[in-house]
Design a protein around this nucleic acid. Structure first.
Lengths: 205, 205
DNA sequence: AAGCTAACGGACGCCGGCGTCCACTTACCG
DNA sequence: CGGTAAGTGGACGCCGGCGTCCGTTAGCTT
């Protein structure tokens, strides 16, 4: 499941490194990136120095810990784009990404980081955005998508999905699926024959 | 705009109290509840002791700082419920609450707090939920709302809205409005005549 | 104007995380 | 089995927030 650990490390070092990564993944997923390096070291039953030797910076630890998630993202997006029907592909992307994000408080935080300083995820993000732009375009041209939908809307709802990872872990999955359902229906073409009781909503004073 | 400060305070004390509240509101809105008491004191140009004298606990400060927002919430919900057309009322509630939340990083955090220990907002939340339940029911009975929609869905999308307050302040408003639009369309009845290319989405392996 | 007391804020001790150093341990290799 | 270098983690000094104390300032009252 994880990337191969460099075999140049001594056996015990390799072991400690793995334990650190596992601890980091667990804590990041549960509590987000705010967990301290110390907390991670303690959970891995390792001294602070050991942690810092392998991962001099929290950034490097975050990258290593979320390598799997980045791959999962790629997989979700690529298989969605490869689907013969762009609308179904888009649906699976939406559900997949929202669920993945809801499961991983920390990953979402890292991947949608507001501060892009030295952000290694930026590259991945850009690549995925390109793919998604194409998918959206195809779905729109197929008439399966509301006309005014853009890739920015997709980013927007993923950004909104961040809120879900604040829920208690037990409820995140169900919430994510339901949210995906609602959002997907919101992406469908606006059918004027549907009950049009609502006009523009007056903004709140 | 704010609640009247107790007149039993000396003039300078009253002044400092107001400055503290203003500082707290600004910082909470921009950066969320994680700002330190010290930061607030510094911005208010007040010693820590003064801050603690008026607000012994961060919780008391949060409550005081967000009194306006709580009122605004009530207003939005009540006026939405009072609307003759429940669907339009619901739309205005959704847009109003999402926008309010996006504007106020800290308020959202406080109001949707996962840890309800000694949470004074709980009471307000409960009251609003009751109102909203009725509104949803009426909208559904009027056929303006998808049949499977419940008040939980509304809470869900408000929870999701938390993610928006992580955006840079300049973009929050526009993002909130767009998000509200998408969500509102997702709440409309599912019209089977619309392009039904999508079936159930296979969950990601 | 003068006294009284509310109010102020700098300073204190405490805690916990930060990143680093170094004396000790232990896995690996010949 | 022994030498050696890789690896370890406790301890250190630093910083910044925490909540409180108390000597000083200044608003209100008569």
């Amino acid at each position: 499941m994880s990337q191969q650990t460099p075999h140049l490390l001594r056996a015990d070092a390799r072991d400690n490194r793995d334990r650190v990564l596992e601890a980091a993944r667990t804590l990041f997923a549960e509590q987000g990136l705010a967990v301290t390096m110390r907390q991670i070291a303690r959970r891995a039953e390792v001294g602070p120095a050991t942690l810092y030797r392998r991962f001099p910076t929290k950034q490097t630890l975050v990258e290593a810990a979320f390598a799997d998630e980045v791959r999962a993202c790629r997989g979700i997006v690529e298989s969605g784009c490869a689907a013969p029907d762009p609308w179904r592909g888009l649906c699976s992307v939406i559900e997949g990404l929202i669920t993945l994000n809801a499961r991983n408080h920390g990953f979402t935080e890292a991947f949608t980081a507001a501060a892009p300083d030295a952000d290694v995820f930026t590259t991945h993000r850009a690549a995925l955005l390109t793919l998604l732009t194409g998918l959206i375009r195809r779905a729109r041209e197929a008439g399966a998508l509301r006309r005014d939908a853009t890739v920015h809307d997709l980013v927007l709802i993923l950004q909104a999905g961040r809120g879900l990872s604040a829920l208690p872990p037990a409820r995140r999955d169900q919430a994510a699926r339901r949210f995906a359902t609602l959002v997907i229906d919101g992406f469908r073409p606006v059918v004027t024959s549907r009950p049009q009781l609502a006009g523009p909503v007056p903004s709140q004073p």
